[in-house]
Design a protein around this nucleic acid. Structure first.
Length: 522
RNA sequence: GCCGCGUUCGUCUAGGGGUCUAGGACGCCGCCCUUUCACGGCGGUAGCACGGGUUCAAAUCCCGUACGCGGUACCA
């Protein structure tokens, strides 16, 4: 049973999907699903100068990777695909934009394909006296700002005061306006903002918000290139697409009153609005690409996908940046989040991106996954890293031994490097601490005893027993032999269970490494 | 500058007049477990921005200040 709740995620294809964008999408998705509603994807490609070819594709891929598949959206191969997308893989080639039909009946879902609509409504606004044509060039507007600029007002607006000095259909005689229009003179359509009014609305996150219209400028609705601005397009589309709730970032709060005015002048009921707190950089300020990367935080969702982060972890972490279920749970599956999600639990203040906490979520998700599953995902990475044709069974053992000590999938390859490659050198501190008087002799003895083991008996319990017996005979502590063996075999002083590791390496390899260490460290 | 929004441990948050000597989580520190390191378990550290009100009572309501953030484009 579906309700009439309809929300949209409306990114602009001006760059790769940003982590903040993903959170906005997530909250929209959660809200929609919580109410059995519809999650719409709309591409706001009205800025032709900033259009980035690969951006749209990137948005689709990453939404699907994060399990936030839109119910309605533009026509693409990936949108029409089954849904599950392989973790951590780039799929650009295989999923090239297709010519399939849109999913949903409120399309087209790309604003660049809806321009006639915007012109119709812009015309309607002009005819009803709530908008007007303006013929000023960019230079003329700049000159106006220069003219009215004062210390108190560094950026004069195009508003009821200044518009009377400009070239527009409010100041020009009617026949002149007609002539300019007929001649195809470059022009824009501007919203005629009233003076002396208060626009108030109830934000679902912030409650009552109000603005004085005197603080607003005559927003351009239709640009000279014929494209609408965000303001017009978003209002027209949200209405035509029957969007019931607009859930977007706080950076839009300031323009909300202009939207309210547009709904009013178009004679439409505005949707409910919810402005989400921004995701902040640890150093302060909106988490911008540059700022984040300076602090070592990737901002593109693609980076996380290609780096094999667990999508469930990223989603869980992002959900908690500005929202919480209200109880003590920290780990929630997507269905659990859907169940718990309400806008009144969304916070008002910005949330700083805590990278360590993301890693904690990632570790948790990884440890919950099956060894075989992780091994399968690891295999291509291992091959890439030059691990040779290691089989899945071997990788599964590596995963089992290392799972509790890595934060991200690729780290298996670093932490487990010694499983495929003998140490070239020994960590100095560890070697010095392990290799003392008599060590060489003891290691040699251990080497000889385990060398005598058969293939079936070269197993962890046996290897441990032999070492235990030997330290007893030698009357030394367990670590006096265990640590040197560990350093000899792995090169470092810490790591996963030694005997399991020896078993996995196999007799020949272990003997080789022990011999090498006796020579180098003895 | 102007407009708007915000402010509980370092961070994410619970809390919405008395049950708050403010709860949980990440991080950090310590202890335990242990063959090392981790994992895990236990414990600790640390916070209501400030100043005025209102009230018998305020982290919670009101006002102001400070600070932070956003907006101030023919970008979204």
């Amino acid at each position: 049973m579906s309700s009439n709740v309809r929300v949209r995620f409306a990114p602009s294809p001006t760059g790769l999907l940003h982590i903040g964008g993903l959170r906005t999408a997530l909250y929209n998705y959660l809200f929609a699903k919580h109410h059995n509603g519809t999650f719409v994807l709309r591409i706001e490609d009205t800025d032709r100068t900033r259009y980035v070819e690969e951006a749209e594709q990137d948005i689709f891929e990453n939404l699907i990777w994060a399990s936030l598949k839109p119910d309605e959206g533009p026509a693409t191969a990936i949108m029409n695909s089954a849904g599950d997308w392989p973790r951590g893989t780039s799929v650009t080639e295989e999923s090239a934009l297709g010519e399939e039909k849109d999913t949903g009946s409120f399309g087209p879902y790309r604003q660049s394909k809806r321009t006639e609509l915007y012109h119709t409504y812009a015309k309607q606004l002009v005819d009803s006296g709530h908008a007007y044509y303006a013929f000023d060039t960019v230079d003329e507007i700049e000159a106006m700002r220069e003219r009215f600029r004062t210390a108190k007002n560094p950026t004069p607006k195009y508003d009821p005061q200044t518009r009377s000095t400009m070239k527009n259909s409010l100041t020009l005689p009617e026949n002149e306006v007609r002539r300019l229009l007929d001649d195809g003179a470059e022009h824009v359509v501007r919203l005629k903002v009233p003076s002396g009014e208060t626009v108030r609305f109830d934000d679902l996150v912030r409650e009552s918000v109000s603005f004085e219209t005197d603080g607003l400028d005559d927003q351009v609705l239709l640009k000279a290139d014929g494209m609408p601005t965000y303001h017009l397009a978003n209002v027209v589309d949200d209405h035509l697409m029957s969007i019931t709730h607009v859930i977007r970032g706080e950076e839009w709060l300031s323009s909300a009153p202009k939207h309210i005015l547009l709904y009013r002048y178009l004679g439409w009921e505005p949707p409910e609005m919810a402005h989400l707190p921004l995701i902040m950089s640890p150093g302060g300020g909106k988490l911008s690409k540059r700022k984040a990367e300076e602090e070592g935080i990737p901002v593109n969702v693609r980076d996380y996908r290609l780096d094999h982060y667990e999508p469930e972890a990223l989603v869980n972490f992002l959900a908690f940046l500005g929202w919480g279920p209200g109880d003590d749970r920290e780990f929630l599956t997507l269905p659990e989040m859907i169940e718990a999600f309400t806008l009144d639990r969304v916070n008002k203040s910005g949330a700083i991106f805590d990278f360590k906490k993301l890693l904690w979520f990632n570790e948790h998700v990884m440890r919950d996954r099956e060894d075989a599953d992780l091994a399968r995902e690891l295999q291509p990475l291992a091959a890439e890293k030059g691990w040779g044709d290691v089989n899945e069974r071997f990788l599964k053992s590596v995963v089992r031994l290392l799972k509790e000590r890595v934060s991200r999938l690729p780290e298996f390859l670093e932490a487990g490097k010694f499983y495929v490659e003998a140490p070239k050198e020994y960590e100095e501190k560890a070697a010095k601490k392990a290799w003392k008087e008599g060590t060489t002799e003891r290691v040699a003895k251990y080497r000889d005893r385990i060398a005598a083991l058969g293939d079936e008996t070269f197993v962890a319990p046996e290897l441990k027993q032999i070492l235990t017996d030997l330290v007893e005979e030698e009357e030394v502590g367990f670590g006096k032999l265990m640590m040197p063996v560990r350093v000899a075999v792995t090169g470092v002083g810490s790591g996963p269970d030694l005997f399991e590791s020896l078993e996995l390496l196999g007799r020949e390899e272990v003997i080789r490494r022990l011999d090498a260490a006796v020579v180098k460290l003895g």
